[in-house]
């Protein structure tokens, strides 16, 4: 049995996945540190401990994410676009378009029947439409990012954020809080701003179905349901794994083919 690992060092979180020939054996997800190598080592150590394997038992370790060039122990590196495509195709074979919202960027990837990337776009040099946007907004609301997703269901009148700029939006949030607007309406407004921004980007690549979401924001039901409404179609949910691990899974899958 071949064991491979994928290590995705992102701007906010670092993910590691150990896979055998058939399935994901273990995974780890940690907050990224200031040093990409230290992040990668810690995530890998956690994943290996859970799987009960040592580094020497791994035939290949593939690195991806922004810190990929700084991981010394990998066999090869792949861009996160290719990794998300490979991982999503493995988890959902019918998938044609992948929306990946990471910590500092948002990527829309179109793949062909073989899972090869045919087109992709990423957002501009700006934090809006990224995980960082939600993180900053959650902080301004004094809540955990995981609590944001549920606020849509409780809100009757979501606020409108006048700017998609993270800095200005944060100033808007403070103003709303001071005006006494219920926190669920502010939270729902944040999810709506995010969904609008990402949907615009999705439409620019003329998405083909099925469409799925990967990355941490895929776990925010508030954003995904609003995106379904704005895009006019359902997003296929990833059930076999944590959507945040898809890049690392894709990297581990690339390790199999080496």
């Amino acid at each position: 049995m071949t064991l491979t690992a994928g290590c995705d060092v992102g701007s906010l979180t670092t993910k590691a996945v150990i896979m055998d020939d058939k399935a994901v054996k273990s995974s780890a997800l940690i907050k990224s540190k200031s040093n990409p190598e230290a992040s990668a080592r810690q995530a890998m150590a956690e994943a290996m401990e859970k799987a009960g394997v040592t580094e020497s038992e791994l035939s290949n370790v593939i690195g991806t994410g922004y810190g990929r060039e700084k991981i010394p122990f990998v066999t090869d590196v792949k861009s996160e676009i290719s990794c998300h495509a490979r991982g999503a195709k493995w988890l959902l074979p019918s998938i044609k378009t992948i929306i990946d919202i990471g910590g500092q960027d948002c990527k829309i990837i179109r793949i062909d029947d073989q899972g090869e990337v045919v087109r992709f776009v990423t957002n501009d040099k700006c934090a809006s439409g990224t995980g960082r946007f939600l993180e900053v907004m959650a902080k301004a609301l004094y809540m955990d990012i995981s609590e944001l997703g549920d606020l849509n269901r409780k809100s009757n009148s979501p606020v409108t954020l006048t700017s998609t700029c993270t800095v200005w939006a944060q100033a808007d949030i403070v103003k709303f809080i001071h005006s006494g607007i219920p926190v669920e309406d502010i939270g729902a407004g944040i999810n709506l701003a995010m969904a609008k921004r990402v949907s615009t980007l999705v439409n620019s690549v003329q998405p083909e179905k099925e469409v799925c979401m990967t990355g941490g924001v895929a776990k925010n039901r508030g954003v995904t349901s609003l995106m379904e409404k704005l895009l006019g179609f359902r997003l296929k949910p990833i059930r076999r794994a944590d959507p945040q691990l898809v890049g690392a899974i894709g990297a581990a899958l690339f390790g199999r083919n080496r």
Partner: peptide, 16 residues
């Protein structure tokens, strides 16, 4: 200043 972001796109394009 954009190097990391540009490089990711370029690498993905090369892989494509």
């Amino acid at each position: 200043a954009d190097t990391g972001r540009l490089k990711m796109r370029l690498d993905a394009f090369m892989e494509r």
